[in-house]
Design a protein around this nucleic acid. Sequence first.
DNA 1: GTCTATATTGCGATAGAC
DNA 2: GTCTATCGCAATATAGAC
Lengths: 197, 197
Amino acid sequence: MDKNELRNKLVLIATRLFAERGLNGVSIRELSKAAGVSISMISYHFGGKEGLYSSVLQEQFSCFGHIEEINNADVEVLTKIEAYIRWIIVRYRNNPYLLRFYTSELTNPTQFFSLIVQPAIEKVFQILMQIVEEGILNNKFRRDLNPADTAFAIAGIVNYYFLSTSATQEIISHLPDRDEELIRHCMDIFTKGILHN
Amino acid sequence: MDKNELRNKLVLIATRLFAERGLNGVSIRELSKAAGVSISMISYHFGGKEGLYSSVLQEQFSCFGHIEEINNADVEVLTKIEAYIRWIIVRYRNNPYLLRFYTSELTNPTQFFSLIVQPAIEKVFQILMQIVEEGILNNKFRRDLNPADTAFAIAGIVNYYFLSTSATQEIISHLPDRDEELIRHCMDIFTKGILHN
DNA sequence: GTCTATATTGCGATAGAC
DNA sequence: GTCTATCGCAATATAGAC
């Protein structure tokens, strides 16, 4: 196994194990054994367990960099909101471990939170607020809408849908084949509210 | 210190420490030292660290038992939704550690998840769905509303508001004096949607 | 019921061979 | 660059004194 292969394999294994049991729940012995390399490789390549965790975190949140494209697209403002919802669903579908790092760092922050996690989440939130502000300026959205609280609503529905999966999956399917229905339903609530007219 | 005082003190200290650093992030040495008792008391009274964690979890989720009162009240269905939002805000305001156990158990479940946490969350979700179904039957809510997805929306906004606090508090205040505005805004989105008419 | 002292295990890190 | 072997420390649990 060459240098890059070894590093990638360690990050891959560490992503799963750290996600499943947290930074303190996994030992470097277990990590190195699962990756099929020597225990000393973690200190050598990453400077220790925390360094490896930092690398995992950086890779996990790198996808947040592409969120700006949604706001820069030349489309109607409601389409941007739907694009955000689709983006976040794809994000969680492609990476089943992301939500664990997301919530773990938000509620039990490590030393890497402020450098890696907080800026990533704040950026997404800012862009959601900008989209809402654009809708208000264009006279598309209600003028008394609070951009921040509206951003909480948009982000909250989808994030909570995935967050609550293990407690609600026996009540309603969380499989990808229902994603389109979920998206339509989110958009319906935002556009129509829940009341019968 | 007598028996009950000692047990209560250990649970109190453990609640804060487990919330801040997770089950694996705290040692029984540190717990017993912070509580001012001997390390052996944890094994003696709780059967070990996991037993103490289980007691903490049970106390944290005991408040979920009162949710049924919201649905049994003889009030209008929109008022029930607002009552749920108020209930969940009060819950988090009264106990700043609850959300950490909530998200930690959802994304990194311990052996106690299925016995303590999952039933509590599922029950709340069921009641939210019942409220939505009642609204549909009463012709108050849209007939094409999916109760489950609507429940995700209602629970998602408020839970995400608290979940994201440490990443968004520099953008918008999360202090209790803005709670009423948040509640009004949630209700406005559900009743009016976000569009300008 | 509570303590101190200790047994035992597993941890992260690293020295040194190759 | 990767390994094996080991050091020093901290973990949980418990035996036994009081």
